[in-house]
Amino acid sequence: MKNLKQNVVWITGASSGIGKAMALEWACLGYKVVLSARRQELLEEIALEIRKSGGEALVIPVDILEEKSIEEAVQQLISTWGRLDIAVANAGFGVFGSMETLTAKDWSRQMQGNVTGLALTVKYALPHLKQTQGRIGLVGSVAAFIPNPHVGAYGASKAAVHSIGLTLQVELKGTGVSCTTIHPGFVVSEIARVDNEGLWHPNRPDPRPANLMWPTDKAAKVMVKAIMKRKRTYVFTAHGKVLLWMQRWFPSLVRTISSKGPKPE
C-alpha cells in the first residue's frame, strides 16, 4: 500500500479491550488512528501512548446509541485528516438475562448498540471508504452461531452483525471496498462488567472460562491481519472454531454443554 503514513483507520469502542489493542497495533503499522468511544479520558491516554511511540492519534468521542454523534465523528475526522481508509465497527456491549426476563427496553438497547450503531457507523464511513477503496471491519462473535442461554439478546445481535456483513459483501462488489466480519471466541474484555443500563462494575466477576480467554494484544494482531487481507468472514480462537464445528455436526451436544455453563450475574 502506497504512502502508508497517510492512511487513516477509525476504530469505535477504542477505549479498552480489543478496540484499544487494535488501535495500538495499527499505530505500530504506521497508520493514523482515530479513537472513538464514550470515555474520552481513556481515549486521551491511548492517544498519548501512540504519540509517545511516534504515531499520530485523534480522539473523537462517540456514542453509538446516537446517530448524530456517529455522523459528526466522521465529519470531524475527514475535516482533520481528509481521508478514511479503514473503519472498524467494534463498539458494542452485552445485555444479560433469560428470554423470560428480558424486557422490551433490554432488547431495544442491545439492538440499538450492537446492530443499529454498527450499521450507522458503516453508513457514514462508506462514502469516504469508496474514495480510497478502503476496508470495513465488523466485530461480531462466535455467539452469533451457538446457543446463548442468559445472553440470548447478545447472540441475536451478533447474528445480525453476521448478516449485515454478508449483505455488505454483495452491495460493495465493484466498489473496491471490502468488508471483513470477525467472530472472536473468548477474549479478555470488560463486557461482563457492564450492566444492562450501561453502568460499569469493576469488581463484577467474569463468568467466562479464564483458561480459554485470549489476551487482547494477541486477538488484535489476528483481527488486523484479517482486515488487511480483506477476508470476508474470520472466526478465531481454537475453542471458537471447535464450537462452530460441534454446532454444525453435534448440535445436541452443544446444547447440553451450554445448559451447564456459568450464568452471568
Rank of each mutant, 00 (worst) to 15 (best):
F186H: 13
A192W: 05
G185C: 11
D217P: 00
K221G: 00
T181S: 10
V194K: 00
K225G: 14
I191H: 00
P215M: 06
M223Y: 06
R208C: 04
S189N: 10
A210M: 08
I164E: 03
A192K: 08
R208T: 13
S178V: 04
V224S: 15
P215N: 09
T216A: 15
R208Q: 14
G165R: 02
R208S: 10
P184K: 09
T180K: 06
D195G: 11
R193Y: 06
E197P: 08
H183W: 08
P205S: 09
P205C: 03
R193V: 06
A210I: 12
P207C: 08
L166F: 04
V188S: 15
I164H: 01
A220S: 10
L212H: 09
T175S: 15
V188F: 14
S178N: 06
M213T: 05
L212F: 09
E197H: 03
P205G: 12
N196S: 12
S189K: 03
M213N: 01
A219V: 07
S163H: 06
V187I: 15
R204N: 08
I164M: 09
G176I: 04
P207H: 10
A192M: 12
Q169Y: 01
V177S: 03
H201D: 12
T175E: 05
G176N: 07
D206C: 00
L166W: 02
F186G: 01
A210D: 13
T180G: 03
G198W: 13
V224P: 05
V222E: 15
T180R: 03
A192S: 12
M223Q: 13
A192C: 10
E190K: 04
P207R: 11
P207Q: 10
T216W: 07
E171Q: 14
V194P: 11
R204F: 12
S189G: 13
I191M: 12
I227N: 06
V224H: 09
G174Q: 13
P184I: 15
Q169N: 09
P205F: 06
L172I: 13
A226K: 08
N211K: 09
D195P: 15
R208P: 01
R204Y: 10
E171H: 08
V188N: 11
I182W: 01
M228D: 14
I164D: 06
P215D: 09
N211I: 09
M228W: 05
H201T: 02
E190I: 00
I191L: 12
H183Q: 08
K229T: 02
T180F: 01
M223A: 10
R204L: 13
A226C: 03
H201G: 07
E190R: 03
L168F: 00
T216F: 05
K229R: 13
N196V: 05
P184W: 13
H183R: 07
R208K: 15
E190Q: 11
T216H: 05
R208M: 14
E197T: 08
I191C: 07
G165I: 04
A210Y: 09
P209Q: 14
P184S: 10
L212Q: 12
V194F: 02
